[in-house]
């Protein structure tokens, strides 16, 4: 096997000087550039760890130290070194305890009599590699949780079976006004302001894949205010459950604007109708009357009558135009 020239900082926690020497020898066979630190009590371990700011690649931990019981040792050691990989070195081959140790986050459990330089070296390499993978997983999980938590759009995850909320982001908490605790004690029912929940579930199950559901849904905020939302959904596995992630877009304002525009449109249509039907009538009458008077053949009496109609038709036009002006002003005001 080729010598390993990578830099390592290794802390050996071991009270037996013979074992200390042996471990150091084993390490030296493969690691050419290892800085070895020694602690022979639990107290010394803690001190060195903090003095060096936890800057170790790996910790080799003997289970039998003079100042702590082996039952407490692992948990206490994990408290000190939360992220660095720890390999247990022990004189006893106790399988049950080994399994328990691994479950507490220990990377490996080695019995001193059975190891040699290569076994120790391999254990360290595996522990470091596993550590690296776990760290990057944790980072990616953190990154995705941040994407969820920091999203400016309200997001929530709910259980498809129970319809209970499994997670909500900060934006949802702020928008709806419920605390995270309240949300997590809710099912979808508490959010819906009307009986549209069944329609939502039907739309949800209609087809797979991420999509924005058609239409809007009516939700109630914690202050009782009712809002209209558009919902985008996708399926997600969440803590072992079949869940759905939902993004809610509040379209209440948008709908209000639309309604206002529709009312204005109605008014404008009304004005257009008035112009084409009501205004036309007296105007047509005026044109006809003037034509009659102009073409002659009228008696004085007839002429008098028609002129009277000219005046009243002109007055009628005036009234209608005033009405249109009023209606137009009400459109402009809004």
């Amino acid at each position: 096997m080729k010598p390993d020239y990578n830099q390592y900082r290794i802390l050996i926690v071991e009270d037996n000087p013979g074992d200390q020497l042996l471990v150091e020898e084993y390490l030296g066979e493969h690691l050419q550039k290892a800085s070895i630190f020694q602690a022979n009590t639990f107290k010394a371990f803690r001190q060195i760890y903090f003095n060096e700011h936890g800057n170790f690649n790996i910790i080799l931990l003997d289970l039998s130290l003079p100042d702590i019981s082996r039952e407490n040792l692992i948990e206490e050691a994990r408290k000190i070194s939360q992220t660095n990989p720890v390999i247990i070195l022990t004189g006893y081959g106790d399988l049950d305890f080994a399994v328990k140790a691994l479950s507490l986050g220990v990377s490996d459990y080695l019995v001193k009599d059975t190891i040699n330089a290569l076994v120790l070296y391999k254990s360290i390499l595996y522990a470091l590699e596993r550590h690296r993978v776990v760290q990057s997983l944790k980072e990616s999980e953190k990154r995705y949780m941040e994407l969820f938590q920091l999203s400016p759009a309200p997001l929530w995850v709910f259980d498809q079976t129970t319809r209970a909320f499994l997670d909500v982001n900060e934006s949802a908490i702020q928008h709806y006004g419920y605390s995270q605790h309240e949300f997590l004690s809710f099912t979808l029912n508490q959010l819906w302001a009307d009986d549209g929940l069944d329609a939502f579930i039907t739309a949800l199950n209609a087809s797979p894949g991420p999509r924005t559901l058609p239409g809007t849904y009516k939700h109630r905020k914690s202050n009782g205010e009712e809002i209209f939302v558009e919902l985008s959904i996708n399926a997600i596995h969440f803590k072992g459950l079949q869940a759905t992630i939902v993004q809610a877009s509040d379209v209440t304002e948008k709908l209000r604007h639309m309604t206002a525009i529709e009312i204005q449109n109605d008014r404008l249509r009304d004005i257009a109708w008035t112009q084409s039907h009501i205004v036309r009538a007296p105007v047509a009458r005026l044109i006809g009357l003037v034509d009659l008077i102009k073409t002659g053949g009228l008696s004085d009496e007839e002429k008098e009558t028609y002129l009277g109609h000219v005046v009243s038709s002109a007055e009628e036009v005036d009234v209608i135009i005033k009405d249109i002006v009023d209606k137009s002003q009400s459109v402009i005001k809004d």
């Binding site: 036309r280 009538a281 047509a284 009458r285 005026l286 044109i287 006809g288 009357l289 034509d291 009659l292 073409t295």
Partner: peptide, 9 residues
């Protein structure tokens, strides 16, 4: 036919 008022000569 279809006439739009006014009706003239």
């Amino acid at each position: 036919d279809f006439f739009i008022k006014p009706i003239v000569s």
